[in-house]
Amino acid sequence: MTTVGARVGARVGARVGARVGARVGIVTFPGSLDDRDAMRAVRVAGAEPVSLWHGDADLHDVDAVIVPGGFSYGDYLRAGAIARFAPVMGPLVVAAREGMPVLGICNGFQVLCETHLLPGALVRNVAQRFICRDVPLVVDNAATAWTSAYENGQHIVVPIKNIDGCFVGSKRLLDELEATGRVVVRYADGAPNGSMRDIAGVCNETGTIVGMMPHPEHAIDDLTGPGVGGLGFFTSLVSRLVDA
C-alpha cells in the first residue's frame, strides 16, 4: 500500500514540478486510425500527447483533447453514433462544455456532431465514393482555439480521406453558422464530398470546440504530407495553453 501511495505521490509531484508544456489527450476507440499521427503532431507542436482509452472514463488531467479519425466501432449504425456513448465521452463532454479545447478530426468530427457538441451532421459523400486526396482549404475563422496561428482567408493544403464527409444542416443553421463566424475552414475549390456551402469544419459558439473533415495531422511535414499546412491547428492550441 505504501508503495502505491508513494508512487502516485511521486508521479504527481514530478508532473507538477516538471510541468512546462501542455498535455493534450488523444482518444483511441476500437477502429481509430489516426491517433498515432495526432499524437505525433501534438509532440511536433511542442505539447505532451497523452493517450486516452475509450473504455476509461478519465481524462487524466489533460488540458485539451483530440478525437482522431478512423472508423470507431466500425461506423456501425452511423459514423460516430456508437463512439458517442463510450465511457471516455462522459467526462469529455462535461469538460468541453466547461471550455476545454476539443478538436474532432474526420471520424472525430462525426463523433462531436453525434454528441451534439457541434451542430449539423456528416452523411454519405454525394458521389458515394471514398475520397482520399490533398485538398486546398481556406481558413474562414482564425480566432478559434485551434486556428489562431493562421490568418483569415489563408489557403492551406490538407488531405481528406472519408466516405461520410458531406456536411449537412438546415438552411437556418447554415445561415447562423456563417453569420456568427462558426465556419472555421472551407474547401477552396468546391467540396469534393458535396458538403453544403463548401464547409470543411465548424466550431461551437466560443471557438473552443472545432470539428473538421480534413486531416491536419497528416500535413505537418514535407516528407510525409503535402506540406506543413496542418501544423497550425496544433501550434494554435499550444500557444493558447502556454499563454493561459
Partner: peptide, 14 residues
C-alpha cells in the same frame, strides 16, 4: 428515414 430536405445519395443511386 433521412429528413425530406436531406440529400439521399444512396436512394438516388438506386
Amino acid at each position: 428515414m433521412l429528413k425530406p430536405e436531406i440529400l439521399d445519395p444512396q436512394g438516388q443511386a438506386i
